[in-house]
Design a protein around this nucleic acid. Structure first.
Lengths: 129, 129
DNA sequence: GTTATAATTGAACATATGTTCAAATGTTAT
DNA sequence: ATAACATTTGAACATATGTTCAATTATAAC
């Protein structure tokens, strides 16, 4: 299962495997390490999905899919305080999922780009299958 | 802004709007309510994204993208205990993101279907843009 | 049967999360 | 200036989350 060539790989990969743990399929562990996504990207990806993983924020995104809305519109739709909505919108903006523009006193929020609607629809396709 | 016809819509929608809250754009709130995704679907969607929103679970999915692995392989790759990995795999299985097959004492985990890899890649495209 | 291996389960802990409340911005009109 | 409006901010609270540890199940070999 572990051929001589596999045992002779560079140290970098070996060092990433904790000592003393069981190794049922060493070559598979090595490949996973080799092809792993960078930690920074993993963290950003996780942050994005974490933000998507809340019913309130998903409802906000779905609503914005129909056109821009202001904070109090969303508060009325969601049945929440404007403060709660504002907090959520900030997270959505920090993750580049929504953007906003000012018109007088009112801030109009909308989806940041086409990717966002796609993210929601791919997820829907999964849960509906 | 609020035409006579808009005021004459059915009561069901009106009742969904909390009393006493500001209404800057009533017609937008109505449309959001009308086109809203069902609560059950929203919850399942949120649950799916919540599961995706963790670095450890994303690393597991990315690793399984290269082929099936057993629990101790993943534990070695992640640098975590097998218990921690098992807990995470259960969440991934409950959300239909991974599946597993038994071969003797070993359980081999793999991505549940093509949708899963797509979910990860769409997310990656978003954070990389 | 016993022993060893692969994985799961449940309790416990520290940390993170979502909402509310009260107070503070920023903008427009008077 | 002042007042009113739209939204944001920070602190506080209860609840949820991820990992570890110890104990348990399940399979295979002896």
């Amino acid at each position: 299962m572990t051929s001589p060539t596999e045992k002779a790989t560079d140290k970098k990969e070996e060092e990433k495997i904790p000592r003393g743990c069981r190794l049922v399929h060493l070559e598979r562990v090595r490949r996973a390490i080799r092809e792993a996504i960078e930690p920074r990207e993993i963290d950003r990806l996780a942050e994005t999905y974490k933000v998507l993983g809340d019913p309130t924020r998903l409802r906000i995104l779905a609503a914005l899919g129909g056109g821009e809305m202001c904070v109090c519109d969303l508060a009325a739709f969601l049945g929440l305080t404007e403060s709660a909505v504002s907090h959520q919108l900030r997270r959505l903006k920090d993750t580049a999922l929504v953007k906003c523009r000012r018109e007088g006193k009112v801030l109009y929020y909308s989806l940041d780009d086409a990717h966002v609607a796609q993210l929601v629809s791919v997820g829907l396709a999964h849960v509906r299958e």
